[in-house]
């Protein structure tokens, strides 16, 4: 067993878990944060993407014990009360989702992409999304949403919760 201490969406969390517990299992089954999805379970689809210390990682391929002491942000940690994060708002406005299964991972990766690039064009967004798969193949609006959110975030829209 491992004692894992994390800050999850701003809240200090301590759990005793089996060593084999994946981060996504801790989030979904121990903490009830089911917004993070398991798609492929082989680190290809990106539905399980969360932020660890500000960087996007695939939580299905990380042990909870590996990231002991880290700050984790999931899709549930983005909105500030009733106000959506600019990336969530952009996905809503631009209809960046169809069935919605890949959406949490797309949004977490979208924020990571915006944070790493001072300016974003469509080609860069498409390249950066190579580890996130949408089975509805709705990439066009996902790309549009990330571009719009990047523009919003650049002009300093309200502070991002938990970021």
């Amino acid at each position: 067993m491992s004692e894992v201490k994390l800050t999850v969406n701003g809240r200090a969390v301590t759990r005793d878990v089996e060593d084999r517990t994946l981060l996504v299992t801790l989030l979904r089954e121990h903490l009830g944060l089911t917004g993070t999805h398991v798609g492929c379970d082989t680190s290809q689809c990106g539905a399980c993407t969360v932020h660890i210390d500000g960087h996007a990682v695939k939580s299905c391929t990380v042990l909870a014990a590996q990231v002991d002491g880290s700050e984790v942000v999931t899709i549930e940690g983005l909105a500030d009360g009733a106000s959506l994060h600019p990336m969530q708002e952009a996905f809503r406005t631009h209809h960046g989702l169809q069935c919605g299964f890949c959406t949490p991972g797309m949004i977490m990766m979208g924020i990571d992409i915006v944070q790493r690039h001072s300016s974003l064009d469509e080609e860069t967004i498409r390249k950066e999304l190579e580890g996130n798969i949408c089975r509805c193949t709705g990439y066009h609006n996902i790309v549009k949403a990330i571009k719009a959110a990047a523009d919003d975030m650049a002009v300093g829209t309200p502070s991002m919760a938990a970021e």
Partner: peptide, 9 residues
């Protein structure tokens, strides 16, 4: 290598 999330680990 891989994709951005894989490269972070």
């Amino acid at each position: 290598i891989g994709d951005p999330a894989v490269r972070n680990m």
